[in-house]
């Protein structure tokens, strides 16, 4: 048994039975599939890769093959109880637009991302002078899918200036929760947010 991703565990904790969920960048639909089994959710996904679409369809998950930045605008306001954007924010071209869309089409949204201000990254950059790597950011500079590096502090300042309310925030390193100085000690962050309507 592979160890369950911590952000998935937290998402399962948050989402109530029978909810209607959109997972943006859903991959092979593992999260939605788990939520279907444990919480009987109605799961929908958006995914860019054809092979992953096939896996989703075989699992009975509704999935749309395409670019999330063009697709999200199709859905009416509050189409979903929750929109999930897990470990994807740092990979998208226009994160501001996507964040505004997910809080529009979701009554609430769950966003998780690797924190670029984790102390080890700061130390690496300071002392090795190379682009930082860690379990949450395992790539070289030239093959990373990550195009926007952000920190927990950056995210807070974004939500403040974009009229988004934070309902819950969780910080963790590996499987351990972090409560002290999260922007320094948290490798990853997960936020439950909603638009102030």
């Amino acid at each position: 048994m592979p160890v369950r991703r911590k952000d998935y565990q937290l998402i399962e904790e948050i989402i109530p039975n029978g909810a209607r969920i959109l997972d943006v960048g859903c991959g092979e639909g593992d999260l939605l599939h788990a939520l279907k089994l444990s919480k009987d959710v109605r799961g929908y996904g958006i995914e860019l890769r054809e092979d992953k679409i096939i896996s989703c369809v075989s699992k009975g998950i509704q999935v749309h093959h395409g670019d999330m930045e063009q697709l999200l605008s199709v859905y009416p306001d509050e189409s979903f109880d929750y929109v999930v954007l897990s470990r994807t924010l740092q990979e998208i071209k226009n994160p501001a637009k996507v964040l505004m869309e997910i809080v529009r089409i979701g009554k609430q949204a769950i966003v998780s991302f690797p924190n670029f201000a984790h102390w080890k990254i700061r130390v690496q950059l300071m002392f090795s002078g190379t682009a930082p790597k860690n379990p949450a950011l395992p790539y070289e500079w030239y093959n990373t899918p990550n195009v926007h590096y952000l920190t927990i502090k950056d995210f807070y300042s974004f939500v403040r200036s974009h009229n988004i309310e934070v309902l819950r925030a969780e910080f963790f390193s590996g499987h351990k929760k972090v409560s002290l100085l999260p922007n320094l000690f948290g490798e990853e962050a997960l936020f439950l947010i909603k638009a102030r309507r």
Binding site: E50, I53, I54, C56, V57, I61, Q62, V63, H64, H65, G66, L71, V74, Y75, P76, S79
Partner: peptide, 18 residues
């Protein structure tokens, strides 16, 4: 077709096969 259905929150999957 898929987008039209999604605009009504219908159950739809879409795949563009290469």
């Amino acid at each position: 077709i898929a987008k039209f259905l999604e605009s009504y929150n219908k159950d739809v999957s879409y795949c563009c096969i290469s």
